[in-house]
Amino acid sequence: MLEGKVKWFNSEKGFGFIEVEGQDDVFVHFSAIQGEGFKTLEEGQAVSFEIVEGNRGPQAANVTKEA
Rank of each mutant, 00 (worst) to 15 (best):
M1W: 12
M1G: 10
L2D: 04
L2K: 15
L2I: 15
L2N: 09
L2W: 12
L2Y: 13
E3T: 15
E3L: 14
E3A: 15
E3N: 15
E3C: 05
E3K: 15
E3F: 15
G4Q: 01
G4L: 01
G4M: 01
G4D: 00
G4I: 01
G4N: 01
K5A: 04
K5C: 05
K5L: 05
K5Q: 05
K5S: 05
K5V: 06
K5H: 09
K5M: 05
V6G: 02
V6R: 00
V6M: 04
V6T: 06
V6A: 03
K7S: 04
K7A: 05
K7C: 06
K7W: 03
W8L: 03
W8H: 04
W8S: 04
W8F: 08
W8A: 03
F9S: 02
F9D: 00
N10G: 04
N10I: 07
N10K: 08
N10W: 08
N10M: 07
S11V: 14
S11F: 12
S11H: 15
S11Q: 14
S11T: 13
S11G: 14
E12W: 15
E12M: 12
K13W: 10
K13H: 13
K13N: 07
K13C: 05
K13R: 13
G14V: 01
G14M: 03
G14T: 02
G14Y: 02
G14N: 02
F15R: 03
F15G: 02
F15Y: 15
F15N: 03
F15M: 10
F15C: 04
F15I: 08
G16M: 01
G16S: 00
G16A: 01
F17L: 07
F17E: 03
F17Q: 03
F17P: 00
I18V: 05
I18N: 00
I18P: 00
I18F: 03
I18M: 03
I18E: 00
I18A: 02
E19H: 14
E19G: 11
E19C: 06
E19M: 12
E19S: 14
E19V: 13
E19D: 07
E19R: 12
E19F: 13
V20S: 08
V20G: 04
V20D: 02
V20L: 14
V20R: 12
E21M: 15
E21A: 14
E21S: 15
E21T: 15
G22I: 04
G22N: 12
G22Q: 09
G22Y: 08
Q23N: 11
Q23V: 10
Q23G: 11
Q23M: 12
Q23Y: 13
Q23E: 10
Q23H: 14
Q23R: 12
D24F: 10
D24T: 10
D24P: 15
D24V: 13
D24W: 10
D24Q: 14
D24A: 13
D25A: 06
D25F: 04
D25R: 04
D25S: 06
V26S: 03
V26D: 00
F27V: 02
F27R: 02
F27K: 02
V28Q: 00
V28D: 00
V28N: 00
V28H: 00
H29Q: 03
H29E: 03
H29L: 07
H29P: 03
F30N: 06
F30H: 11
F30A: 11
F30Q: 08
S31C: 05
S31A: 10
S31I: 06
S31Y: 05
S31G: 09
A32Y: 05
A32N: 11
A32P: 01
A32I: 03
A32F: 06
A32K: 06
A32T: 06
I33M: 05
I33N: 01
I33Y: 02
I33S: 02
I33E: 02
I33A: 02
I33D: 01
I33F: 05
Q34L: 13
Q34P: 06
Q34W: 10
Q34E: 12
Q34S: 12
Q34K: 14
G35D: 10
G35T: 09
G35N: 09
G35Q: 11
G35P: 03
G35E: 11
E36P: 10
E36Y: 06
E36V: 09
E36K: 09
E36C: 05
E36F: 07
E36T: 11
G37M: 06
G37D: 10
G37E: 09
G37S: 08
G37F: 05
F38G: 07
F38A: 07
F38K: 09
F38S: 09
K39Y: 06
K39D: 05
K39E: 05
K39W: 06
K39L: 11
T40Q: 09
T40K: 09
L41K: 00
L41A: 04
L41H: 01
L41S: 02
L41D: 01
E42L: 12
E42P: 06
E42W: 12
E43H: 15
E43K: 15
E43I: 14
E43C: 06
E43D: 13
G44L: 05
G44Y: 06
G44P: 02
G44T: 05
G44W: 06
Q45D: 15
Q45W: 15
A46Q: 13
A46T: 14
A46D: 08
A46M: 12
V47F: 01
V47K: 00
S48T: 11
S48F: 13
S48I: 12
S48Q: 15
S48G: 08
S48L: 12
F49A: 02
F49T: 02
F49I: 04
F49Y: 05
E50N: 07
E50D: 11
E50Q: 05
I51G: 02
I51L: 13
I51C: 04
I51N: 03
I51H: 04
V52S: 10
V52C: 04
V52K: 11
V52W: 09
E53M: 13
E53P: 13
E53G: 10
E53F: 15
G54Y: 08
G54A: 11
G54W: 08
G54T: 13
G54N: 08
G54I: 07
N55K: 12
R56C: 05
R56N: 10
R56M: 12
R56W: 14
R56S: 12
R56K: 13
G57C: 04
G57T: 04
G57L: 04
G57V: 04
P58A: 13
P58C: 04
P58N: 09
P58K: 12
Q59H: 10
Q59W: 07
Q59R: 11
A60V: 03
A60L: 02
A60Q: 01
A60D: 00
A60R: 01
A61H: 12
A61K: 11
A61G: 08
N62T: 09
N62Y: 07
N62V: 07
N62Q: 10
N62L: 08
N62P: 02
N62D: 05
N62H: 10
N62K: 14
N62I: 07
V63C: 04
V63E: 00
V63D: 01
V63R: 01
V63K: 00
V63Y: 00
V63P: 01
T64V: 13
T64I: 11
T64C: 05
T64Y: 11
T64Q: 15
K65L: 14
K65C: 04
E66K: 15
E66F: 13
E66C: 06
A67Q: 11
A67H: 13
